[in-house]
Design a protein around this nucleic acid. Structure first.
Lengths: 157, 157
DNA sequence: AAAATATAGTTTACTGATATACTGTTTATG
DNA sequence: CATAAACAGTATATCAGTAAACTATATTTT
């Protein structure tokens, strides 16, 4: 049977909280005709126009293939322009429509999330941020490209 | 420009922590030849053999279509059996191979996660769990099937 | 009992993400 | 300088997930 020790219980809590918030964020964006992925692209681009697809992919922690496909389906809002310094990269710019959409949706999104997430005492957020940062640091001891870990933990003896 | 108030910063922290942990969990399972979705199915089934596909879908918070497709691709580990009480539902059972796999992988997964997530003082987990529970409760004021919200927040005036 | 409705499962079409292979371009290096 | 290696982008195949249409079976209602 599953061992529900304190670490696991806290992790379950974290997952549930994450999903509760994210589902609402997605619902909010869906009503405005945007997917979360599209919103992320618009949001990042509106602060960093003129970056390459690769840089956008890095920022969003997704693959360049994903960005390519995503951009393909947002032609009304995003434009690929030639990079004067390199013929292999594209520079991404918002179209006027994209800029307009980004402005309104970003600000509404901000208001919505702040309202959704706010309302608890200031000390709560300080404490929570600190705790999460500590946990994340602790988790990152374990490298993501592990092969030893598989042996050490999953392994024999 | 984005307003990075305390709520948003805490949310960013939470997302980062969530992804840092989940990426490692996925890497762990991938090395053992399982996707996270497959693991979830095995894990739930090994504690609840004989449930229907619909019940499994409900438990995992996914659609029955997803479960159907998922089960289709795990024939070595999962078996559909006729429900003696209803000809329209299937009952899901682990095959001997599925049972064996579940046993070893579940326990290794448990050990791995406990090690990954553990190591901080007990008070940390108590405090974090409590904080997350409070935040989740507060978030759930906002109903997920909102239409008023879209007007109230996204809206005019 | 017949008709309407609801339910379990399947299928299909779509989005989103990955990995991988492929194209073309740039940069290193031998 | 020529070739090899790295890099940006694209294309393709695959895996998860959703929604919606469809099939077959149960259940309710009239």
């Amino acid at each position: 049977m599953p061992e529900l020790n304190r670490e696991m219980l806290t992790w379950l809590r974290l997952m549930r909280t994450f999903h509760a918030i994210q589902r609402r964020e997605i619902a909010f964006l869906t009503e405005r005709g945007l997917s979360l992925a599209q919103f992320d692209v618009l949001a990042h681009l509106s602060g960093h126009e003129g970056i390459t697809q690769q840089r956008l992919a890095d920022s969003l922690l997704v693959t360049k293939g994903n960005v390519c496909h995503l951009i393909d389906r947002m032609p009304a809002w995003i434009e690929r322009r030639a990079d004067p310094t390199s013929r292999r990269s594209n520079l991404l710019y918002l179209t006027p429509d994209g800029k307009a959409l980004a402005t309104t949706v970003l600000s509404a999104h901000d208001t919505y999330l702040s309202d959704l997430l706010g309302g608890l005492p200031d000390a709560f957020y300080r404490q929570m941020s600190g705790g999460l940062r500590a946990w994340e640091r602790s988790v990152k001891r374990v490298d993501i490209s592990m092969s030893e870990v598989s042996v050490a933990v999953g392994g024999l003896k």
